[in-house]
């Protein structure tokens, strides 16, 4: 990289990260608020697919599901990781000393 050429590093700046955070939180809020628009059709909003009052018809169900499911999976993975994570040489695999042929010649 020539020193005079300015590198594109927008994502490294703290203010960019702050902006992205705001966009993300905004998108979450908007996606939930937009569900209100579904009440304009018939005044009832969404219907569940599993009977008249099934839980998936509740307001904001998918937002809650997304949040809870992902949080649970992360906690679940973290917990299982305590037992399952091992050092990389656990199986005693042979370490390659040279890069194989499928890698770019210029860095081999």
């Amino acid at each position: 990289m020539e020193p005079d050429k300015k590198e594109f590093d927008w994502f490294d700046h703290p203010e960019s990260r702050k902006l992205l955070w705001r966009v993300l939180i905004g998108a979450c809020i908007v996606s939930v608020l937009l569900e209100v628009s579904l009440f304009f059709d018939d005044g009832h909003g969404r219907h569940g697919h599993f009977g008249d009052h099934s839980v998936d018809g509740w307001f904001g169900f998918y937002a809650v599901l997304g949040f809870v499911a992902c949080a649970l999976m992360i906690y679940g993975a973290k917990f299982l990781g305590k037992f399952l994570k091992k050092d990389e040489d656990y199986y005693g695999d042979p370490e390659e000393t040279t890069l194989p042929e499928d890698i770019d010649e210029s860095i081999r």
Binding site: A27, C28, S31, Y62, G66, F67
Partner: peptide
């Protein structure tokens, strides 16, 4: 909703 909250 599902995806944005997952990203969050």
């Amino acid at each position: 909703q599902l995806l944005m909250l997952s990203a969050l």
